[in-house]
């Protein structure tokens, strides 16, 4: 099993009270499964993804991903886990503005154990002709494709996408989702994203 969550809870303190963002979440996700996480705002989607990806920690329960127990991992171990195991795609791209498309992807490739070919990945997302451009010279959809290339380049066991189309128009969203599906099949493992197929204002 790639991901195993057992009675996972996460609470946040709000003023003098506390708020449980996740309560007793138990689920297992095998390899090569494409999972969509749906739910209203505040339902815990991002918290769940962040815990699976080692960005956040659970307050109760156990979390195992690729056999690694994240529940008791140190910050150093979590950093190593994220670097070796997880590819992230965020809603707002988080690209490095003063690096070109190729350099943004190269940064991740340089620290990966078994990176894929940069040219092949850029070609797969249709950005090879734009490899020398800077993020500010790209559209939102193109920037998200860079973000996807950066996540995929290290050939991660787990690809997590948190609202990857949240800031894109419908047509561009469809293209990005198609790329996400392609990137998870047939060779790579599950992708989780929240709020799939959101028709943002065109």
């Amino acid at each position: 099993m790639l991901i195993e969550l057992n009675k996972v809870g996460r609470r946040y303190h709000m003023g003098q009270g506390e708020f449980w963002a996740l309560k007793d979440v138990t689920l297992s996700i095998p390899e090569s499964q494409l999972v969509t996480i749906l739910g209203p705002s505040g339902s815990g989607k991002s918290t769940l993804l962040n815990i699976m990806g080692g960005i956040d920690h659970a307050d109760t329960g156990t979390v195992r991903v690729t056999g690694v127990d994240l529940s008791h991992a140190s910050e150093r171990d979590l950093t190593q886990f994220r670097r070796d195991t997880v590819g992230f795609v965020f809603q707002f791209f988080n690209l490095i503005p003063n690096l070109t498309v190729r350099e943004n992807v190269e940064v991740t490739a340089d620290i990966a154990k078994k990176p894929l070919s940069i040219d092949e990945v850029l070609d797969a997302v249709g950005l090879l002709p734009m490899a020398d451009r800077f993020p500010s010279e790209l559209s939102g959809g193109e920037q998200q494709r860079v973000s996807l290339a950066r996540a995929v380049i290290k050939n991660p066991s787990l690809l997590l996408a948190d609202e990857p189309t949240g800031s894109l128009d419908f047509v561009t969203s469809r293209d990005i989702l198609r790329l996400l599906v392609q990137s998870t099949r047939p060779t790579t493992p599950p992708s989780c994203w929240s709020r799939i197929m959101l028709p943002s204002p065109i």
Binding site: K23, Q33, L34, V35, P40, K45, V181, I196, M197
Partner: peptide, 30 residues
């Protein structure tokens, strides 16, 4: 196309099912 849908509500799993189909925008709850 997705293999599986996990629907959350108030931090709990409300639904977890295998689907093997496209998720439509109308299904998304804000």
């Amino acid at each position: 196309m997705t293999d599986r849908v996990i629907r959350l509500r108030s931090g709990e799993v409300e639904e977890d099912r295998l689907v093997g189909r496209l998720i439509k925008a109308e299904e998304v709850t804000w």
